[in-house]
């Protein structure tokens, strides 16, 4: 098990390492002079300010030096400053990250609580009308764009019925974005749970369990559910990555103050330090969560736990 987790951790570190390189190179892919572009929108910038930003980004040095410079600062938790306001990028991202994590976690809980039981039910009732209805609903569900669903929920629940706040950062404001993300992913969870459970149900040890006369409910609980959960947990890792990606869109619909909203503003303002920081934080978060889920996976699957 340690070996398995060690491999996963090494892969995660490699990903973060590659991200740091990509992020350093990113700014050189910008057509034209990135610093000029950054300041093109703001008036009254002095040449001194531009030079200061250029050297703060280290753009006046060769690329390998820039990279070392970047990593050196990164290790001290320094991601540079925003082009307007000169705020610390690391601080800004860390302030906003909990909002995005809360949103992704709540959305994942909603998706799991709706999708998993329905997927399990569909697998159990496989081939019946109920299964058919559930699966048609699921395929319709994965086809509805989450940004559209978000707008519809917004206008229905917040504007028409007025039961939820439209936008902002109060405690109730998380409900709409989380519901949007959760509902649109519930369909994916349901489809994946169903296929995982069907896989398990068709295996020999399930037939043996039935054959030795175990009651149906016991076979379902002790055998099918436990074995079927393993692949579902793996899928949850990918789900979390989807949630983080979806959060970028949904945060912007509901003005939820997460890193996705910050990133979009930064893209429009050409605030490259913020974009760099966002990519790093996003990738690191996904890597860490995936690793945590790998640990759960290893604990659930006895073949890995005992190896």
């Amino acid at each position: 098990m340690l070996r398995f987790l060690g491999q996963r951790a090494a892969m995660g570190l490699l990903t973060i390492f590659v991200t740091t390189i990509a992020v350093t190179l990113l700014i050189h892919l910008v057509p034209g002079d990135p610093v000029e572009i950054m300041y093109a929108q703001s008036q009254g910038t002095t040449p001194e300010q531009i030079e200061a930003m250029r050297s703060s980004l280290g753009l006046d040095q060769p690329i390998p030096v820039q990279y070392l410079h970047f990593v050196g600062r990164l290790l001290q938790g320094d991601l540079g400053v925003t082009i307007r306001g000169q705020q610390s990028v690391a601080q800004l991202l860390l302030q906003r990250l909990p909002n995005t994590l809360a949103l992704a976690a709540l959305a994942m809980a909603i998706a799991t609580l709706i999708g998993m039981p329905l997927g399990f039910l569909a697998a159990y009732k496989r081939g019946t009308l109920l299964d058919g209805v559930l699966m048609v609903t699921a395929i319709a569900g994965i086809s509805i764009p989450h940004f559209w669903l978000g707008l519809l929920l917004l206008f229905w629940l917040a504007v028409d019925l007025g039961i939820l706040p439209v936008a902002g950062s109060g405690p109730l404001n998380i409900v709409l974005p989380a519901l949007t993300l959760g509902l649109s992913n519930a369909a994916i969870v349901a489809r994946m749970t169903r296929s995982a459970m069907i896989d398990v149900m068709s295996q020999d040890f399930i037939r043996t369990a039935h054959a030795k006369g175990l009651p149906k409910s016991r076979v379902l609980r002790r055998h099918v559910l436990r074995a079927g959960l393993v692949p579902v947990v793996t899928v949850m890792g990918l789900q979390f990555a989807f949630m983080m990606g979806g959060a970028i869109v949904v945060e912007n619909i509901f003005a939820w103050n997460g890193i996705g909203r910050l990133a979009l503003e930064a893209i429009f303002q050409r605030d490259y330090p913020v974009i760099q920081g966002f990519i790093l934080v996003f990738a690191t978060t996904v890597v860490v969560v995936m690793l945590a889920l790998d640990a759960v996976y290893a604990l659930l699957d006895p073949r890995i736990r005992r190896s």
């Binding site: 995660g12 990555a241 989807f242 990606g245 996904v286």
Partner: peptide, 11 residues
């Protein structure tokens, strides 16, 4: 792959 599609597209 572990960067996720959204992040790559956004970058």
């Amino acid at each position: 792959f572990s960067f996720t599609e959204t992040l790559i597209a956004l970058a």
